[in-house]
């Protein structure tokens, strides 16, 4: 009897409760990732990359540090140590385990994490990428309301070897206005971080952990001035350049994986799935959200019917 969990298809054993993840129901095989609460042994050698919240060593070991939250040590793509700050709510720790730490685990394991939400439309994966605030989770939720299950929120992990997307975990992050627009209840939900307005919304319905082929990538482009309209398919050079900018924890990834390895993965993804820019008018009312989602759905279906 164990309480192992599944994240991106990995068997995860955690001494810190992670209620966002589903229980491991796969074969009895060795644990892929262990997450423990422990004191973090920071190396005495100098890191190769120093950012305000992150430090990275030559061998790919990674430390994330946030005052009032805690410290997170990620090594070898298989071990995470968490040292919580005094009084940090457990949910605050999980925001970083299921965000930055997940992104770094992907890099350490040679995967391509794209800053994207992903949904399943007719048995294929569709990625919705974009910068913070572009509306990835919002569009994924609107597609959810049209019956398309969530695969990942914010970090979409692609395995360049198999060419498949590895579904992450069944949770969305949504603001109250989007919840209202989609008639989703928000009683009893926790916020993403204390002081933030985004809620964590479970999305267990139809969530499947099985790897799935990506069929299209949409990159949201929010602008106050047009042209607006249908998604625009990009040439392969432009697709690769844009996907490269959408790599999650890109600077850290460049050090862990090398720029060439990541660019090869980007090239592979752009070969497997056409890349579109998806123009969105800044300040567009949420009443237009369903039409916007329908446009994406129809683009994917047209693409599939043309084989």
């Amino acid at each position: 009897m164990n309480h192992d969990l599944i994240l991106c298809g990995w068997r995860v054993r955690s001494t810190l409760p992670l209620p966002e993840l589903l229980p491991w129901t796969g074969e009895d095989r060795p644990v892929d990732i262990e997450i423990d609460v422990a004191n973090i042994p920071v190396p005495t050698v100098a890191p190769t990359l120093v950012l305000p919240h992150s430090r990275l060593w030559d061998n790919g070991d990674f430390l994330l540090e946030l005052d009032g939250v805690g410290r997170f040590w990620v090594t070898q793509g298989r071990q995470v140590l968490v040292e919580p700050a005094t009084d940090c709510p457990a949910a605050g720790l999980r925001a970083f385990i299921l965000g930055s730490v997940l992104g770094v685990l992907c890099h350490q394991r040679g995967l391509l994490p794209i800053h994207a939400s992903a949904v399943r439309i007719d048995e294929v994966a569709v990625l919705i990428a974009g910068i913070s605030g572009a509306g990835k989770s919002t569009l994924a939720a609107a597609l959810g309301a049209r019956g398309h299950a969530l695969l990942s929120d914010d970090v979409a992990a692609i395995d360049p070897k198999s060419g498949q997307l590895l579904p992450a975990y069944p949770q969305r992050k949504l603001t109250p206005d989007v919840l209202n627009a989609l008639q989703m209840p928000h009683e009893g939900l926790l916020t993403h971080r204390v002081g933030q307005v985004k809620y964590r919304v479970p999305a267990f319905a139809d969530f499947s952990t099985a790897p799935i082929a990506p069929a299209a990538v949409f990159v949201l482009n929010v602008s106050p001035i047009g042209p607006f309209g249908a998604p625009q398919r990009l040439s392969s050079a432009k697709a690769m350049a844009l996907l490269d900018r959408m790599i999650y924890r890109r600077a850290v990834g460049h050090h862990i994986q090398s720029k060439l390895a990541l660019f090869s993965s980007v090239a592979k993804l752009s070969h497997l799935a056409p890349v579109y820019t998806l123009p969105r008018r800044k300040g567009a009312p949420l009443s237009e959200l369903d039409d916007f989602a329908a446009q994406v759905e129809s683009c994917v279906r047209t693409l599939k019917s043309h084989g």
Binding site: L51, P52, H53, S54, L66, D67, A95, F96, G99, S100, H115, I131, S132, G133, D154, K173, H192, R193, V194, G195, Q196, K198, R245, Y248, R249, R250, A251, V252
Partner: peptide, 24 residues
């Protein structure tokens, strides 16, 4: 610019509080 912050500090500002952003 939020996107510049995210790109150069390599962390999604959407995971940070207003005070954490200003401190960085």
């Amino acid at each position: 610019i939020r996107a510049e912050f995210d790109r150069l500090l390599d962390i999604p500002s959407s995971d940070l509080t207003d005070d954490e952003i200003t401190n960085a």
